[in-house]
Simulated scan of single mutants.
Amino acid sequence: MTVEQEIRSTLEDYAKAYCAKDIDSLMHIFEDSDDISIIGTGADELCIGRDSVKELFLRNFAEATASEFEWQWSKINISNDYAVVAISLIIHLEYQGSKIEIPIRWSVALRKTDRWVWLHRHASSPASNQDDGQAYPQQA
């Protein structure tokens, strides 16, 4: 398996654990450190440390059930024992009795130990009021 395949495998491991609501497997993807962090799409989703990250995932699990991560555009940069993944995806969810698809953009920072572990994940959603070719969202 190439280094890039190993890193992509961590994305699949994340998706599988998230869809299964398997908090232990999901947390295993991250470095076993209180230095891990997540920035999510919600205004209050700024998490540092294992307890905070775990709490965010458990809240997500309580609100919705993911069924699929549909990977799209991606770029992986590798430098020695570190890597950065930039990727877009669609998360398929059941939320409040409806099936929805949420477009997401991620940046993931990883470090090689005995395996590739996640140090940080940042998620954002494309601005819905910003047309293709525009640098900024339209003002209402």
Rank of each mutant, 00 (worst) to 15 (best):
L119W: 06
R121T: 11
V108P: 00
L93I: 07
I87P: 01
I78W: 00
Q130I: 08
W118E: 06
A43S: 11
A127S: 15
A135F: 14
R59I: 12
A127M: 10
A123L: 03
L110V: 02
S37D: 10
L26K: 09
R121E: 13
D35H: 15
A83R: 02
E101I: 00
Q134P: 00
A20T: 04
I100E: 13
D81Y: 00
Y18D: 15
E70W: 04
W73T: 06
I76T: 01
A15S: 15
L46A: 11
T65G: 03
F61V: 06
V85N: 02
I7Y: 00
A123R: 07
A83Y: 01
D114L: 04
H120P: 01
S79G: 03
L26V: 05
L110R: 05
L56C: 06
Q138G: 06
K54H: 06
H28I: 05
I90F: 08
D81V: 05
R50G: 03
I36N: 06
Y95Q: 08
D32C: 11
V53N: 05
D34H: 08
S25R: 14
S52A: 07
N80V: 00
S9M: 11
T113A: 08
A127Q: 15
L46F: 14
Y136E: 15
A62C: 01
E31R: 13
S128I: 10
D35L: 10
A127N: 14
S125L: 15
L46W: 11
N77C: 03
F57Y: 13
D44P: 03
W71E: 05
S74H: 03
S98F: 12
A83F: 02
H92T: 09
L110I: 06
K21T: 05
W71L: 10
V117D: 02
W116F: 01
Y95N: 04
A43V: 11
K99E: 13
P126T: 05
N129A: 13
D132H: 04
C19L: 12
E70S: 04
S37K: 13
K16L: 14
R115H: 08
Q138L: 15
C19W: 03
L56G: 04
D81T: 07
H92K: 10
